[in-house]
Amino acid sequence: MTHPLNPFAATRYEARKARTTIMAKWGTALACLMLIAPVLWILAYIFHHAWPAFSLDYFLLNPSDKGKAGGLWGPLIGSFYLVICSLCVAVPVGVLSGIYLNEYAKENWITRAIGVGVTSLAGVPSIVHALFGLGAFVLGLLPLINRFIDDPLQRMHAGLLTASLTIAVMELPLIITSTREALSSVPKTFREACWNLGASKWQTIRTIVLPNSLGGILTGIILSVSRAAGETAPILFTGAAFSLYVPETFPEKLAPYAVSEPFLAMAYHLKIIMAEISGMPEHMKFGCAAAMILLILSVNSLSIALRMKLRNAKKW
């Protein structure tokens, strides 16, 4: 059924094929657009409404009048310390665990079980982590520590310590997986060359494998920073507070919370001011949400930029 004048014209079958391909291409592109456009619109909407709240003071002053006035300093610094404290636990354990899985573990059912454990741990809902944190740290660990503290005023309460431990458990799978991937991308020949020089297993890991995979590990750690800063459910019952006096004077302002006392955090602050305080000005709600989005997206962009830089710099 070729065209009478043009022997190269598409047959009806070929034309249909070309049509379906174009439809497939633009149909799936439309799906991408349908996912991205609403979210970009929503983000633009949030930032538009948040704009009146933004000023330098908004980030440097503490919240006052139940968050209706003032700024976000207290919650920001609280989230910062929460992230740092949780990383202090999660990074050593996670990285060492990643090293174990990639360098030491043999191919057997135990290793497979640990692998399933990592993915299952990543899939545990955040509210279950919250229950775990409440049961294990607030009601389990703290009474244990308090038994050794005689002075009732010195006793520990749910606070930075318990919340960071809870968050640390949540961060583990992400750090383990990214460490494992970063280590496994170091070529086997690097290790073999090192062994041939007489280096032991740990020497090889320390001098060859770790330095070559540091970037990949760092990317995973940065990602877990943004995860930790955004988590709300796990800190609900393990130490986050809303109405809390935070010093406004300078040196105390940088480290306002004790590890054994409740603290303010961005995620919890946002939760309370948007849903639980009546008469909250709109721009304060949107301002807090926008600040949170900015915080998370900038941390994640850092991780993406680092990864791209590493990919371009890779020597093998």
Partner: peptide
Amino acid sequence: FEKPIEWLIKICGWSSLAALTAILIFILKG
């Protein structure tokens, strides 16, 4: 510190399973 560090690595290797078990135990206890 090679030996102690290798021991530490092996212990940490179990951390995910330990965390999972601990979660289950404390949820059951609660």
